[in-house]
Amino acid sequence: METVIISDTPHLRKKRTTKGIMLDVLIALIPATVAGLVYFGGRAAVTLILSVFSSVATEFVWLLCKKTDFKTILKQFDYTSAVTGLLLGLTMPPLEYSLWYIPVLSGIFAVGAVKMLFGGTGKNIVNPAIAGRVFAFIAFSGSMVSGWISPAFGSLSSGNEVYAGATPLTDLLGGGLQAVGVSNLDLFLGTGVPGCIGETCKIALIAGGIYLVARKVIKFQYPLIYIAVTGLVSVFMSGTDWNVFLPSVLGGGLILGAVFMATDYVTSPNNKPASYVYFVLLGVVTALLRYGTKIEVVSFAILLMNLIVPLLNAYIRPRPFGATPVIKMIKDKIEAKKASAVKKEADGK
């Protein structure tokens, strides 16, 4: 007698869960968090704690208001809102203690208005961390633009002097590296460069990205394409001055956005050809916006592109299994036209 097993779909299961993926992302963000804390100290710690706490609390409060059992919420808690909170905190400048309400309100907006209002995990229309950051930028523009403090270590190139400028990326885009007094190595390590908590130490971010690629959470080519295209377009916009490539790639929140935010599953296209188009367009839009407005635009570019992802999904379809490749279809059509033309000539004669 053979045993017949009747079961429901899915029939093929893997060990991956949303929880597991989110935990991987959290682990990948640890180096950047540690670097941010080391560079910026207590203010960064408070900002991060507040944003994570408010994001998670918003999700809990929302589900409680919908009369879900607290135990069920705990059981079903995938760490998506925690990741949102941490990413949101990492994109904020290290804020003063008196501005505690900024991470809190941004967290509430990010999780409440962008994620829970639209249906919870997997239903957000844009990346919630990006939306929270843009909300903070619009709502508290003064504090977000001028909350820079100099990091704990000074710049390596200018002899451990601490950069004291108004807005680092603006000066960088305006005047180049000399105007800012940091070298490419400084931008890479984050020493002496003021900025948002998570975005300054590029090597920590890259380490996190390598971890994610190794764990197969993100595909390595997409962030690379984004970063490379941004650099290339920036070079072209400034009249093929190749010295601009490294600063434009290493400066600002580009690597943080490319590795952790643009690759979010919900808000990026769901097939390969569309993904390539998406990331190339992201790079172009980021570089053009940076050239035009001279402020840090990665969050706005990602927000814009997130909104057109449904369009890309609808119109750029992958080839279904068993269908004729496009090139072969075109070849067949040309052959058919040739054959009918020859036939017409033969008939006409």
């Binding site: 309100l105 619009i138 709502a139 523009s141």
Partner: peptide, 14 residues
């Protein structure tokens, strides 16, 4: 205490 988001056009739609 002001949240300037609400006086901007984005806040209007929201």
């Amino acid at each position: 205490f002001r949240i300037e988001f609400f006086t901007s056009s984005a806040g209007a739609f929201f």
